[in-house]
Every structure is written in C-alpha cells, then in structure tokens.
Design a protein around this nucleic acid. Structure first.
Lengths: 116, 116
DNA sequence: TCCTACAGTATCTTTTTGTATACTATATAA
DNA sequence: TTATATAGTATACAAAAAGATACTGTAGGA
C-alpha cells in the first residue's frame, strides 16, 4: 500500500459512510434507483423517521444523494443516488466482500473456542 | 453491483474500521510494521493513552492486530497487523483513493458557491 | 365526519464514543 | 536520591449518535 498515514484521506470516505443506517440506505438507492421517503422507510426495517430524515439530509449535504420535492398534497419526495454518489460503489463492494469473509472467520473462531 | 441490501455485510467491515483513531493506527502498522505502544502513541498525535489502548484492544479482539507482551521492566508490548488484518488493505486503499478525489470535489463546490 | 397516507418536526431520554487527568509499578540512569 | 520511560488503569466528564414518542398539515376516501 502507498498511503502516507499523515496524508490519509480514509476519514473522508468514512465521514460519509458512517452512520447506523447510511450503508443500507445507499445500497437501496443504488440497487433500486429512485425511491420515495416512505419506500425507503419500508425497506429499512427498524429505522425511525427521524433517523431516515437525518441521514438522508447528511447524504444530500455531501452531494451523494439527490432530493426532489414535488409540490403535492400529500407530499411526494424522491431520493436518488447522484453520479458522484455512485463513485462510492467500489468501497461498498469491497466492504461487503470483506464482511462476507469475516462472517466465516468469526464462525471458525467460535469453533476453536467452544468453551467460554 | 450485486449486493442484496438484506444480506449486506458492509457493516461488518465498518464495525472494525470505525473509531476516531482506528484507520490511522492500522495504516501505521501496515506501513511501518511492528510497533511498540509508545511508538504508536508518538505517531498518532493527539491520541490519549486510554483511546490508544481501547482501540488496540478492539482491533485485537477482531484478530486484526496482534499484541505481544515481553515480560520486562519497564514493560515492552509490541503490536502488529495479522495476516487477516492485511485483508483490510483494499478497503483502506479504496477509501483513501475516494477521499483524495473527494477533497477536489469539495473545493469545486466551494468555488461554485462563493457567497455564503 | 373521521381516518389514512405522506413527509416530515419537536422534544426528551438513552447509549455510545471520546477527552482530561491522575494514578500504578519498577528497572535504570543521573 | 530523584527523575524518567514504559504500558497501562481508574475516574469523572463532555459530546455525539441514536431511539422513543408525540405532533404537524392537508387531500382524498369510507
């Protein structure tokens, strides 16, 4: 690797990705395209409206997600990944791939230490 | 991309990488190899002993970092990346690369909105 | 007339994360 | 004798993140 720890920009990516619900929100938008607020809420079980709003606002602030409001009643708001946001895909893919192996690693660890 | 959000393992990677000082600790160990506690402390400016200890313990718990204690006085404890830990490199590299571009993106954004 | 869907806010509490500071033991050096 | 380096621990505190719950306005349907 060729990252000078002093010039490390890993944090910049983490700043955007970190948040209990952000990865799954991004994955949904990447996979399913444009989604309404309520669709996201349904697809992310357990999330509260407050958290969904907060994380979407933060992702929007970073130009990773776009928010389009339709002046209707009842309201309609659509969220989608921006072109810039799509550049996060390789990171998410790398993390997912690693995570998949990590599950196996943890299972092996438990087998090796059955008495705890 | 081919990640089913329902089977998403991105969080597994984030769990390990998230923490104010974890990426820089990992980068130091990856780049400089085995390091003593005090060396790490010197190379990570601003970190307190408690945080360094805590993060190292968590990384050790995940088998990403190895801790070797020499029975000496004054104490000597060495930390190094495990083989398993090295598998995190592509993720860190992807994030660093993205972060480097992100800096430029932010600069362009500021240029476009000079009045705020 | 009351209820529901929609996309949120507002307020409060809990949990997690990080900071600050003082303290430990002991071999060695000045 | 006193100070220093080492690798921590203990305690208190502050800040950030997340959760729980109640509330808003309004068109359309039963």
């Amino acid at each position: 690797m060729d990252i000078e720890p002093e010039l490390c920009r890993v944090e910049d990516a983490l700043d955007i990705l970190v948040g209990k619900w952000k990865p799954i929100i991004l994955l949904h938008l990447l996979k399913n395209g444009t989604q309404r607020f309520s669709e996201l809420k349904r697809h992310v079980p357990g999330i509260t409206q407050k958290m969904l709003t907060k994380h979407l606002r933060e992702l929007e602030e970073e130009d990773v997600v776009e928010r389009v409001v339709y002046p209707q009643v009842p309201p309609k708001v659509e969220y989608s990944i921006t072109e810039y946001g799509k550049s996060l895909e390789p990171i998410l893919a790398a993390m997912h791939e690693w995570g998949t192996k990590h599950v196996l690693h943890k299972q092996q660890k438990i087998k090796q230490q059955p008495s705890s």
